[in-house]
Design a protein around this nucleic acid. Structure first.
Lengths: 156, 156
DNA sequence: CAACGAAGGTTTAATACTAAACTTTCTTCA
DNA sequence: TGAAGAAAGTTTAGTATTAAACCTTCGTTG
């Protein structure tokens, strides 16, 4: 038998848990939907979302190592390795070995593809977010940043 | 050559595009991090995230059809079919055919596993979201709902 | 009622991703 | 210096996921 106060506490705890879960569920849905649309969009360039991500990140600053790419994309180095195998074979980029590390450079073709697909992609993302006002997007960004940072530090 | 006003407009446009992209990037990162932790967590029950999702959704209301599950989880019916093959073989649920549709029912084992893993999962999610206050979570939920709804209607 | 098409489910081929084992290269320190 | 271990990359086996073709069942309508 619980007292009134502990019951209230437990209800409040349950409420806050539900709120967190509802928020997470919604975030998952938004992610999945946008991601699937991105996959559709990328077909125009015969790119998978993963390859687009690699192209995008490798182009921000050329000469990045594979491990840096893996960290930036939150995937394993094994995955990056396979992606690069394919993309190198398709002439989008090339590896330059230096000791035990590989540095990644885009080819002209890769760079051109990056610019075209990235421009179109950002335009689409902006359009999909446009249901939110600038202020709302700013708020959303702030909250997500806060979440993201706390997830980095606290690998519980 | 652009006039001052069009240049300002174009800068504003660029800014809003950047804001949207930054927000989306951050959302992706949060999603990936939480998802990976969920995958880790589920190992304790020898569950993949997908199987957990199926268990969870199938248990909300038993007797759901495969297509309903696919829609709820935002995956293809082919994927659900394969997942159910494995989970049925492992005794977590069973299909009951009715005409051309299958209805899904959890076994006692599946139901028990669902309850245990779901409770732990929700607790973990609540903990990970706890960096945000209740008000902040509420705001986040509201913004994500708005986004989600606009993505449902406008399959542009 | 009979044919057609839609809807639910299954199968198959191709790609993606992880974890873990492995190779090579670098660094550290006894 | 040289042995141990860390760090970068590669490989492999297993699971996930999609798209597309296919089968079965149901509803519609000529």
């Amino acid at each position: 038998m619980v007292t009134d106060t502990t019951q209230l506490q437990s209800e409040r705890l349950q409420d806050s848990r539900n709120l967190a879960v509802l928020t997470w569920v919604r975030l998952m849905r938004v992610y999945h939907k946008v991601d699937r649309r991105t996959a559709e969009e990328m077909k125009h360039w015969k790119l998978s979302v993963s390859r687009f991500d690699v192209l995008n990140h490798a182009g921000v600053r050329e000469g990045r190592t594979q491990q840096e790419l893996a960290d930036a994309l939150l995937v394993t180095k094994g995955n990056i390795c396979q992606l690069l195998d394919g993309m190198e074979a398709d002439g989008l980029l090339r590896r330059r070995r230096s000791g035990r590390t590989n540095h990644i450079y885009l080819t002209d073709e890769g760079r051109a593809l990056r610019e075209a697909s990235l421009a179109r992609h950002e335009e689409r993302i902006a359009q999909e977010m446009s249901v939110l006002s600038s202020d709302e997007q700013q708020t959303l960004l702030t909250l997500l940043r806060k979440l993201d940072r706390s997830l980095s530090n606290d690998p519980a």
